[in-house]
Nucleic acid binder design. Structure first.
Lengths: 137, 137
DNA sequence: CTGTATCCGATGTGATACTG
DNA sequence: CAGTATCACATCGGATACAG
């Protein structure tokens, strides 16, 4: 293969496709996507924007715990990836709206399937922070 | 919500579920899963094991570029997550086989859907390391 | 063959202060 | 309101050496 390796087809139901050349992991769109969605806040932001458009500070409050730095970084990356659209309204005070692009919405479909698997099969399987019992005290 | 937040249901087709409490992002199985699969080698190893069982060095060669440290770490984490089974054959020289568990195989299903989305919609969309033109030679 | 231990640079993330 | 700049710390990941 090497240069002609354009496969990585649609991969059938149960096994990921090609034995991936490795070293090209960077260029593999699959791993690339995972690494992005796999960061600390992206999935969270994506899930919020999946419900409706948000303004910057609105997101900042909703994703309570995120720093301005990371919120901005996350949004900028999503924008660069074409998943989120940023619209500035030159009002006073200024307001900026973030919303999913059609591409972003389309991503939520397979993402939902994965999320569904996660809540069903995952580790201690306590959905959203409801630990089994005193983990801390 | 807070302590009673056990929802994060199956989330309908187009929008991720709950506005996630945030701060609980660590405990959210969805984000948690993403962060694991989103590391540098997990997806690659998972895809290989999706085809057939592998021995340690066999993987080391197949995932050319990975260090022993990271291969071991990745496999150990996958094992801890119940996605991969490790079997030691006390032969001489010793051999260890890694294979997907049923849980691991079940994960490949939604993962494949996401991978499929990636190869279809992603960035410069050059599937597996086939850069547009002479990047290296 | 199948790992473990150690060191080290790269990157991710948070805190804080400042700006149009 | 919606950011940017800077510093600091934790974790990720690679290289190398060593071991059962």
């Amino acid at each position: 293969m090497s240069a002609t390796n354009t496969d990585v087809p649609s991969m059938r139901a149960h096994a990921l496709p090609t034995p991936v050349p490795a070293g090209d992991y960077d260029a593999c769109p699959v791993t690339s996507l995972m690494r992005r969605v796999g960061d600390k806040w992206t999935l969270l932001v994506l899930s919020l924007l999946g419900r409706r458009p948000y303004r910057y500070n609105e997101l900042h409050r909703a994703v309570e715990g995120i720093s301005q730095r990371m919120l901005t970084r996350t949004l900028r990356t999503l924008e660069a990836d074409g998943l989120v659209a940023r619209t500035v309204f030159p009002s006073v005070p200024p307001s900026v709206e973030y919303r999913l692009t059609p591409l972003g919405e389309s991503l939520l479909v397979p993402l939902s399937a994965l999320a569904d698997w996660a809540v069903r099969h995952q580790p201690s399987s306590t959905p959203l922070g409801v630990r089994p019992l005193g983990d801390n005290g």
